[in-house]
Amino acid sequence: MNQYKDFAMELVKWLGEENVKIDEPMKKHTSFKVGGPVDVLVTPETYDQVKETIELAKKNNIPYFVIGNGSNLLVKDGGVRGIIIKLCKLDKVTVEGENIIAQGGVLLSKISSLAAKHSLTGLEFASGIPGSVGGALTMNAGAYNGEVSQVIESSLVIDKQGNFIRLSKEDLELGYRMSSILKHSYTVLEAVFKLKKGDSEKIYARIDDLGRRRREKQPLEYPSAGSTFKRPEGYFAAKLIEDSGLKGIHVGDAEVSQKHSGFIINKGNATAKDILDLIEVVQRTVKEKFDVDLHTEVMIIGQDK
Rank of each mutant, 00 (worst) to 15 (best):
H260E: 02
E147S: 06
T187C: 14
V148M: 09
H184F: 14
N163D: 14
I264Y: 00
V188F: 07
I249W: 00
R215L: 13
G252A: 05
K247Q: 05
L276D: 00
R166W: 12
G248I: 08
A238L: 11
V188H: 04
F164A: 13
N266C: 11
G268M: 03
A272H: 01
R213D: 13
G211Q: 14
L189I: 05
L182P: 15
V256I: 07
G175V: 08
E221K: 09
Q161D: 15
R231K: 12
L246C: 05
V148C: 05
I249R: 03
G211I: 11
G146P: 06
R166N: 10
R215A: 15
G162Q: 06
E190P: 07
S180H: 10
G252N: 11
V148H: 03
V192M: 08
G262R: 00
V251W: 02
Q218W: 13
D253H: 13
D159Y: 12
L278R: 00
K247G: 04
L156R: 02
L276E: 00
Y176N: 12
V188G: 02
S185W: 07
L278C: 08
K160M: 11
R215Q: 04
K183M: 12
S227G: 09
A272P: 01
G245L: 06
K202A: 14
F229W: 14
P232E: 00
F263S: 03
A237V: 04
G245N: 02
D253R: 05
K230R: 12
V151C: 11
K202V: 09
D209Y: 10
V256N: 02
K197H: 09
T271C: 06
G226E: 02
E190W: 02
D199L: 06
H250D: 01
R206G: 11
I275C: 04
E216S: 15
D277L: 14
Y235G: 07
L276F: 09
L246Q: 07
F164T: 06
K267A: 04
S200T: 14
A270L: 08
K169D: 01
I241M: 00
G252E: 01
V251G: 03
A237P: 02
D277M: 05
K267T: 15
V148W: 00
G268Y: 01
S227W: 03
D199S: 10
R214Y: 15
D199I: 15
K217H: 10
S224H: 15
A254H: 03
S149L: 02
K197C: 05
K194D: 02
G268A: 03
K239A: 11
L276P: 02
E233Y: 09
I241F: 01
F229Y: 07
F236K: 07
R212M: 08
V251Q: 06
D274F: 09
A270M: 05
Q161V: 13
K259P: 03
E170Q: 12
R206V: 04
Y176L: 05
E255C: 08
S244C: 08
K267N: 14
S244P: 13
R215I: 10
P232H: 04
E170P: 05
G162D: 01
T228M: 15
I275W: 02
K197N: 07
L278F: 08
Y235M: 09
H184T: 10
E221F: 09
E190L: 13
T271N: 04
L195I: 09
E201I: 12
R166L: 06
